[in-house]
Amino acid sequence: MRDQRDLRYFIAAARHGGFRGAARATSTSASSISEAVIRLEERLGVRLFNRTTRSVALTQAGETLLARLVPALEEVDAALEATSALGKGPRGLLRLNVPGAVTRTILPPILERFLAAHPDITLELIANDGFVDVLASGADAGIRYEEALSQDMIAVPIGPRSQRFAAAAAPNYLERRGHPRHPHDLLSHDCIRTRFPGGALGIWEFEKAGGVVKIDPPARMTVSTQAVDMAISATVAGLGILMTFDGWLEPLLEDGRLLPVLEDWWPTFSGPFLYYPGRRHMPPPLRAFVDFVKAEQADERAEGRSRSQGIGPL
């Protein structure tokens, strides 16, 4: 047990920039952290940290040990949690890193059903529109749209398998400026754009009869992906044309506050995916969530087959 404690103290010192930071993070003393590292160094016969009066930094040997040690201890923790959960329902904290887009309509009903089914699981949701390293962010799993995943990641469909982008504008804007007839007409219109955390503006893509047109229209107003509500309000106020998820605009299109623009060009795309590390032992809350999502997807596929065959409820 002392060997494992020394290893965890070493990880804490590496993550928190030295012995004092590790001591604060682990609620122990800096001398205990230092003694643990010295024991490890003596046992391994290599120096793990370069120490000066001002700083503590990993050596190459320390970096090698840290890279191998962190996933190994995570496997140990997951195995212990899974074993302790035998005979009782899963419990603990589930951390998800998700884009803001799924927090509006897709994720809330899924999480409500999941948490109702698992009363001993608590949830921490981090909204982040960038593509992040799940483990480095401290999350157990992430949700993204068709991202290129590293080889040790597993992707599971979550939510609708097909979505659509819609373009719309207020009636008074279209009365003043006219209705675009082709995506290229947008180059002479005021458009309301969204910007990703990395600084890139989202390119507007349209499709029709197998053809795709990509447009980088002028922006009368630009908002971050976390401020889409402001973009929608500005569109209703007549400031320009907006392109976003059709589900977000549907109520406004139905009551006439917005009118569709280039509706026959609206593109469809694949729905989001839940992705997580392909570890042998998953924390029980994550395992419960993955199983729940897979079961819901299976139920939806079965319902879809029944509808296509004309089979109704008995």
Rank of each mutant, 00 (worst) to 15 (best):
G130I: 06
I154M: 06
A169H: 05
L111C: 00
A168N: 04
G178F: 10
F196N: 08
N172D: 10
W204V: 05
D129V: 11
H179F: 13
P99I: 06
E207F: 08
R144Q: 12
H182Y: 03
P157C: 06
L187T: 13
D133H: 12
G142C: 08
L123E: 01
R220E: 09
G199L: 13
G199K: 11
D140K: 12
T225W: 00
V212G: 05
A116M: 04
A209M: 11
D190K: 14
P108M: 03
A155M: 05
G130Y: 10
G202M: 06
D185L: 13
F131L: 08
I154H: 06
A141T: 15
G100I: 11
H184Y: 04
P183Q: 09
A148W: 05
P217S: 09
P99A: 03
P119H: 02
N97P: 01
A168S: 09
V212T: 15
L187A: 13
I110K: 03
P108W: 02
I121F: 01
A148K: 14
D129Q: 07
D190F: 07
H179R: 15
F196G: 05
G202N: 08
V102W: 02
P119K: 02
G178K: 14
P171T: 05
A136H: 07
G142L: 06
A167W: 07
A117F: 00
P183G: 06
M153N: 11
L201C: 00
D129H: 12
N128T: 08
C191F: 00
A116G: 02
D190W: 05
A148T: 15
A219C: 09
M153H: 09
F114W: 02
N172P: 01
C191I: 12
G130V: 06
R220P: 03
G199W: 13
N97R: 15
A139W: 08
E207L: 06
A227Q: 15
I110H: 00
H118C: 04
T122Y: 03
E112Q: 07
G211F: 14
I106C: 00
A170G: 03
V102S: 01
P171M: 07
G159R: 08
L96V: 13
V156W: 04
D152N: 10
T105Y: 02
R144D: 05
A148Q: 11
I215N: 04
G199N: 09
P108H: 01
T194P: 01
G178D: 08
T225S: 07
D229C: 10
A127K: 10
T225D: 03
N172H: 14
R176S: 12
K208S: 14
D140A: 09
L135Y: 01
A227S: 14
P119W: 01
E207V: 08
F114K: 02
P109Y: 01
V102M: 04
G199R: 10
A136I: 06
V213A: 09
I215C: 05
Y173M: 02
E124H: 09
R104L: 14
E207A: 12
R176H: 13
V228F: 07
G142A: 15
L111Y: 04
A166Q: 03
L107E: 02
R181V: 15
A168L: 03
